[in-house]
Amino acid sequence: MISQVMFDMDGTLIDSERLFLKANAQAATELGVPRAPRDFLPLVGTAGADGLAKMTALVGAAKVPAFAERSVALVMQWVQAGVPIARPGAAALLQRLQTHGLRLVLVTSSDAAYTQTMLTAAGLRDYFAAIHTRDGAPEKPDPALYLRAVAAPGAAPAAATVAVEDTVIGVQAARAAGLRALQVVDLDAPAPGATARVKNLAEAGDWLCDLA
């Protein structure tokens, strides 16, 4: 039995990764490094030094700061213009889990300002009892974010919690924190450490409700 589900945001509930692939290609082209969105797939599910190394390989060290800043600016511009960003079935899944009495928590490596913007634009903010962002904590795959979320007031214990992630590093973070991890496989590779893997959020709902 579970009583709590902890969700990743980018790529899991919000289709931001495809937006970033498009933004990466445009930003690189503006900086004189023409590339297609698919060229930036290696950036999906990266963090820290690994992500920096891959950006450097794609656009060159001198252009990384401008590339990163411009990519984020483009994504924010499109979101504010009303581009749909919720993953298919995201709201329906969260409603279904709430109906089953599950406590919903967001655990993301994104910062607080970006997180609030994306959740509000997607219409998903009010589903969560708590939101934990990277502010003041290491990014995934470090388990610190999940450990902080499990230790927070009102949280259910790890044994009664499942994390829902889309990337290998997200699954690694959840498992290192002692949680079961359900991977919704999309742009990143299947995670060897996942407790289970599904193809979409509807299948995720079936799997989670069976445990509720």
Rank of each mutant, 00 (worst) to 15 (best):
M1S: 10
M1Q: 09
I2V: 08
M6L: 14
F7Y: 10
F7C: 13
G11V: 01
L13A: 09
D15M: 09
S16Y: 08
R18Q: 11
F20C: 09
L21T: 04
L21P: 00
K22E: 14
A23N: 14
Q26K: 15
A28N: 02
T29P: 01
L31P: 00
P34V: 08
P34S: 11
A36K: 13
P37E: 06
P37I: 08
F40A: 14
L41S: 11
L41I: 14
V44I: 14
V44R: 06
A47E: 13
G48L: 08
D50R: 13
G51H: 12
L52M: 13
M55P: 01
V59M: 03
A61K: 15
K63M: 09
P65A: 06
R70S: 02
R70F: 01
M76Q: 14
A81I: 04
G82T: 06
I85W: 00
I85P: 01
P88R: 11
P88I: 08
A92P: 02
L93G: 07
L94N: 12
R96F: 01
Q98L: 11
Q98N: 15
V105F: 02
V107K: 09
S110Y: 00
D111N: 12
A113S: 08
Q116A: 14
L119W: 06
A121Q: 01
D126L: 07
D126V: 02
F128T: 02
F128M: 03
A129T: 11
A129S: 12
A129E: 11
D135M: 08
G136C: 07
G136R: 08
G136V: 03
G136I: 04
A137F: 15
P141R: 14
L147I: 04
A149S: 11
V150C: 12
A151C: 06
A152R: 07
G154A: 04
A155R: 00
A160K: 13
A160F: 01
T161M: 08
A163L: 06
A163M: 03
V164D: 01
E165K: 08
E165T: 07
V168L: 14
G170Q: 10
Q172A: 15
Q172W: 00
A174N: 04
A174S: 06
A177V: 02
G178P: 04
G178R: 09
A181I: 03
Q183K: 09
D186N: 11
P190L: 11
G193E: 13
A194Q: 02
A196W: 11
V198I: 05
K199E: 15
K199H: 14
A202G: 06
E203I: 05
A204K: 04
A204W: 05
D206A: 11
W207C: 12
L211P: 01
L211R: 15
